[in-house]
Amino acid sequence: CHSECLGNCSQPDDPTKCVACRNFYLDGRCVETCPPPYYHFQDWRCVNFSFCQDLHHKCKNSRRQGCHQYVIHNNKCIPECPSGYTMNSSNLLCTPCLGPCPKVCHLLEGEKTIDSVTSAQELRGCTVINGSLIINIRGGNNLAAELEANLGLIEEISGYLKIRRSYALVSLSFFRKLRLIRGETLEIGNYSFYALDNQNLRQLWDWSKHNLTITQGKLFFHYNPKLCLSEIHKMEEVSGTKGRQERNDIALKTNGDQASCENELLKFSYIRTSFDKILLRWEPYWPPDFRDLLGFMLFYKEAPYQNVTEFDGQDACGSNSWTVVDIDPPLRSNDPKSQNHPGWLMRGLKPWTQYAIFVKTLVTFSDERRTYGAKSDIIYVQTDATNPSVPLDPISVSNSSSQIILKWKPPSDPNGNITHYLVFWERQAEDSELFELDYCLKGLKLPSRTWSPPFESEDSQKHNQSEYEDSAGECCSCPKTDSQILKELEESSFRKTFEDYLHNVVFVPRKT
C-alpha cells in the first residue's frame, strides 16, 4: 500500500485506493498535508475557505447554543480562536489581540433580562453583547459592586439597553466600559436606550469621564423622579442622539420631579488639616426662599486615587461607600458681607490618608415646582503625618564578641513616609551569675543571650482551647457569634421535631 494509506488498500502504491488515510483526505486521495488554498479540518480532512465560511455563517444565523462559528488559524479551520487571539470578521482569520481579548457573548432569543446578581454573573467577562440587555433589578445585597464585577467589562451592545423598574439602582456607572450601543435591534418605538419607572436612579454616568455613542435609535425617559433633566440632556449631547427624540420621548413632568437638581456650584473657602482632623468651610448658599434650606450634607471617604465619582458603590438597598454628615444651616444675616460661612470639623480620621470630599445642599421643593440647590466639586484632601507606631517583631542576635545583629519589621501604621529608623542602645553591667558559677561542674549549661522565638506554653494553649472559665478566673470563653447562636437554635429545633416524629412513629394507638 501507499505510504499515506492506513489499515489496508485495494490497489498497491495508489493513494486513492486506501481504506483510511494516515494524515489527511483531499478529493478522494490521501495526502501528507493540505496544500494551499485548503485548510486542515478536524485533523483528517482538507477543506477550502468557502466550506469553513459556510459553517461560520450557519452557526451565526441559527443562534443555536453550542454550535461553533468556525475560524481560520495556522492553516486550520477550527471552532474558535485560541487564547490571546480574536477573529477578523472580513476573512475569519485569528489575529493577536492588542491588550485583553474581546469576548463576544451571543444571547438566546436576542435579549437577556438581568433581574438578579445570579443572572448578571452569566455575563461575567463579556466585552461584546450580541443582542439586547434588559435591566430589571428590584433589590439585593452589595448590588453596585456585584454588577460592576460582572457587567463592568461590557464595551458594546449590538441591540438596545433597557432599564425598567430597577428600584435598587442609583447610577449606571457599573457599566464602566460601555462605549457603544449599535441599535441594530430596537425596542418598540425605535428606541435604543429605554429608561422607565426607576424610582431611585439619580445618575446615568459621570459624563466628564465617560463617552457613549448610540449609532441608531432614540432615547426614552419616563417616570424617573430623581433623575434630573440636565442629566438626560447631557446624554443626548454626548451620545449623538440630540435631535432624534420626539416631543413625548422625554417626559418633562415625570423626570426629576422629586430630585434636588443642583444648578449652582458650592466653593470651599477654608481648608485646614491635622493628622486626624480636617476643618472645612464653604461659601454660604440661600435659595430664593431661605426657609427652603434644610441644611447641608457632607460626604467623605478614603480615596487612594483621584478618580472618585459621587455615586460609586451606591445602591438604593443601603450600600453606600460614603460617610454622610448632616449639618444645620448657619444663622442668616441681613448683611451679605457678614454672612457666616458654614463648615464642619471632621474628626477621627487616619493620618497621612487622602480623602475625597464634597458637600451639597438639602432643600425642600418650592411652590413653583422649581428645584434649587448647590453642590461642590469633589475635592481631595490629605491629612498630615504623625509619629508612626512601633516597629514590629524586633530580633537581636550576637554573632561574635563585638557585634549584635538587630532586625525588625516595619510598623503596622507608618502614618507617613518613613525615611529612617533611630536605634538606641545602652551598655549593661555583666551578670554576677557568670562569676559565681563553678565551671568545672559536669552538665553545666552556660547562660545564653542568643534570641529564641517566643512560644506559647501548654497552660496558655489549654486556656485558649477551654470553653469555660478556669477556677483562677484568668480566662473566659469568647462570646458566641450570631451565626453560632442561630445554628444552635436550628439544631435544637431539629432535635425537638425529630423526637416528636419518633414518638408518633414508635407509639401507635392500640386498636379498641
Rank of each mutant, 00 (worst) to 15 (best):
R369L: 12
I327K: 01
D289Y: 06
P288F: 12
P336K: 05
S398M: 03
H233Q: 09
K242P: 05
R138T: 05
T323K: 08
W282A: 01
E187R: 06
Q306P: 15
Q216V: 09
R244E: 07
D206W: 04
K409E: 14
W344N: 10
G125R: 12
Y223N: 08
A149I: 03
Y305Q: 03
G139N: 09
E122P: 06
R179V: 06
Y223L: 14
K177H: 07
E236K: 09
T371V: 08
C261V: 03
S230Y: 02
I154S: 01
Q245H: 04
K360H: 01
N399G: 07
R291I: 10
I188C: 04
S402I: 02
H106M: 13
L107P: 12
V325C: 14
I157W: 00
W322S: 01
K103Y: 06
N340D: 14
I278T: 01
L180C: 12
Y355Q: 00
H341C: 15
F311L: 09
L108R: 12
G373C: 04
R164V: 04
W408M: 02
L172G: 02
S400P: 04
I163T: 02
I181S: 00
V170W: 05
K242H: 12
L186N: 07
G217T: 00
S321I: 09
T371M: 03
K177Y: 07
I378P: 01
E236C: 11
E187N: 09
F193W: 05
S398C: 07
P304I: 11
G131W: 00
E368M: 09
V363I: 15
L293R: 03
A374E: 02
Q258T: 13
L392T: 08
S396P: 15
L180K: 10
Y194L: 09
F220T: 10
T383R: 00
G313H: 13
Y191C: 13
A195I: 13
E246A: 07
M235I: 10
P329I: 09
L252G: 15
D257A: 15
G343C: 09
I188M: 02
L196G: 06
R244S: 06
N190T: 07
L151S: 01
W286F: 05
R138S: 14
Y380Q: 02
S366L: 01
L153Q: 09
K409L: 12
R369T: 07
V324Y: 12
L107N: 07
A144E: 14
L293K: 07
W344K: 09
R244L: 13
S173W: 07
A303E: 02
L293M: 10
G318L: 15
A374G: 12
V397F: 14
D328E: 15
L180Q: 06
T386W: 05
N150M: 07
E368D: 15
V238E: 11
L172V: 15
R202I: 01
I134G: 06
S171T: 09
R247N: 04
Y223R: 11
L349P: 01
R179F: 09
Q121N: 12
S173F: 06
P388N: 08
K267P: 04
Q199F: 14
D289I: 02
I378V: 03
Q199E: 14
D276A: 11
L362N: 06
S400L: 06
H106L: 07
D393K: 15
T323Q: 13
K209C: 14
L172M: 13
P351E: 04
Y160W: 04
N248E: 11
C105L: 01
L212K: 01
P287V: 10
R347N: 09
W344L: 11
V128R: 15
Q203I: 07
W205R: 02
K226P: 02
A168I: 05
L107D: 03
S230W: 05
V359W: 01
T361G: 12
S192R: 01
S230H: 06
F221P: 00
N340T: 14
Q354C: 01
K218A: 12
N334L: 05
I134H: 00
L298V: 07
Y167K: 14
R369I: 14
S132Y: 01
N142T: 08
T127L: 06
K103P: 06
